[in-house]
Amino acid sequence: MPDTAPKIIRRSALDGHRHVGDFGTIKGGVPGIVIQERRALSIVHLDAWADQVVACGKAIEKACGTAPAADPVKASEKNDTTVLWVGPNRWLIVEPESRDLFATLSADVTDDLATLTDQGHSRVCWRITGPNMRDLLAKGSTIDFDQSQFIPGDCVGTLLSHFTTVLHCRGDDTVDIYAARSFAVDLDHWLTSSSLEYGLWVLEPA
């Protein structure tokens, strides 16, 4: 092994497949959909022992500044950290890659509270914004995306087209979509081609 490791850049599943630019029928210069990949994320899957959920929540708060939301199908956020509910006593903790999230969490969330699994390379995340965000999602999922029903903070696991996804509602017209890396190219194609009628901007990854 050489002493100085070469600079290694993470290669997203979409690298080489992303088409940045304006597409489809953009009306009045305003796209109905804006798509941007959120890349180089740290993601840790956390599965709490059923009798340690409260203590585990506190440990997560200590490590990340925010405890998981009290209710299922909800996300919590603080600064750059998002805690996504993905099942009973199970969460994905997501941050833009900056610190060793797995090690940080491991320090506070000990074996007797939960198991931790590094999933930082397993998911691709798209941020979708725009007035047609809900129309786009309705093409693929049977969730009720009405503004009164799918509200900021909601975090639902669902089938979007063929793809198993987690949809994190972040605003009236903003959603983060998480999906398995191996499906990313196909899902990206579905998202972009389904957006053409609304007019689409694809941005460089954030």
Binding site: H162, F163, D186, H189, S193
Partner: peptide, 18 residues
């Protein structure tokens, strides 16, 4: 619907697919 051709069924790609 849109589930024809490439989208008839989803395909999984490994990181070395290209």
């Amino acid at each position: 619907g849109s589930e024809i051709g490439q989208h008839y069924r989803p395909r999984r790609r490994t990181p070395m697919q290209d």
